[in-house]
Amino acid sequence: MIDRPSPNFGPRRDGLRPSIVVLHYTAMSSAEAAIQRLCDPEAQVSAHYVVCRSGAITRLVAEDQRAWHAGEGEWRGQQDINSRSVGIELDNTGDHPFPEPQMAALEGLLQRIMERWDIAPENVIGHSDMAPGRKSDPGPRFDWTRLARQGLAAQAGYEEGPGAPDCTLFRRIARDAGFTADVDHETLLAAVRLRFRPHATGPLAPEDFTPLGHAALWT
């Protein structure tokens, strides 16, 4: 663990403590470039950690403090995600796979954070989950299935979706799964697909329901 303290933080509001982990990609040329920006007081952005492609971890903000990484958004009906979360930036431009050393380091870091703050796997999310349409990180190349297998993210469902997909039903089930941001149907569908079916296209399909729960929800 390397410490590079950022000045961009403050106290968590209203006595809140971390109950969510938000994963990002840096979308910059290198981890060092990202760290410099996250430590620049004029940028007014930060995160708690940056995980380099080599697996090196840099800590910028203490976990009990409020880093400025999430911005506007909502998860499970809760806003001010910065006060409720730990933010992890992954050194990635968004268009290439996340290398093994980086994923292994992230897994170890996630496990420790989740144990310290008693965070449920269902509350390990991407920036795109809480800010649909506004953010797309950690992007389509991120391996959520790998995290889920280790209990570090929500398990996706596997049962066949409804034969006649209905947008209103999809919205209700997606909200129950945590996607509560106030966005239109197309934006919500895109966010759910980015998380669970990143290469899917076209109109709402039975397969879009499958990862969000079980058949009893739509039968």
Score class of each variant (00 low, 15 high):
140 P>F: 09
153 A>M: 12
186 E>G: 14
164 A>H: 07
126 G>A: 11
143 D>M: 11
147 L>H: 06
163 G>C: 11
126 G>S: 08
124 V>A: 11
172 R>T: 15
129 D>T: 04
160 E>G: 02
183 V>K: 01
146 R>N: 12
184 D>K: 11
126 G>V: 03
124 V>R: 02
148 A>G: 11
141 R>F: 15
126 G>N: 01
139 G>H: 06
175 R>E: 15
172 R>I: 04
175 R>H: 15
172 R>N: 01
173 I>Y: 05
120 A>E: 07
164 A>Y: 12
148 A>P: 05
129 D>A: 08
164 A>S: 13
174 A>N: 06
135 K>Y: 10
162 P>E: 05
137 D>I: 05
131 A>I: 04
168 T>Y: 03
138 P>E: 09
135 K>R: 13
141 R>D: 13
175 R>M: 15
173 I>W: 05
163 G>S: 12
178 G>S: 12
128 S>D: 02
163 G>V: 10
188 L>C: 11
148 A>I: 07
177 A>G: 07
162 P>I: 04
164 A>D: 03
121 P>C: 12
148 A>S: 10
148 A>R: 01
146 R>Y: 08
163 G>H: 07
178 G>H: 02
169 L>V: 03
166 D>I: 07
164 A>W: 10
141 R>H: 14
128 S>F: 06
155 Q>A: 14
184 D>L: 13
156 A>Q: 14
182 D>H: 13
138 P>V: 04
158 Y>Q: 14
133 G>K: 00
184 D>G: 14
154 A>H: 04
129 D>R: 00
124 V>S: 10
174 A>R: 08
123 N>M: 06
179 F>S: 05
120 A>M: 10
189 L>H: 00
174 A>G: 04
161 G>V: 02
156 A>L: 12
128 S>I: 00
143 D>W: 09
133 G>Y: 11
149 R>P: 03
153 A>V: 01
189 L>W: 01
188 L>D: 01
172 R>V: 06
183 V>I: 06
174 A>T: 08
141 R>Y: 15
181 A>T: 02
168 T>G: 06
120 A>S: 07
123 N>H: 10
159 E>T: 11
165 P>Y: 04
138 P>M: 11
141 R>M: 13
135 K>I: 03
134 R>S: 07
134 R>A: 12
153 A>T: 03
161 G>Q: 02
122 E>G: 11
176 D>E: 15
123 N>F: 15
121 P>S: 13
138 P>L: 12
139 G>D: 08
148 A>Y: 09
128 S>L: 12
122 E>H: 06
127 H>E: 07
128 S>T: 01
133 G>R: 04
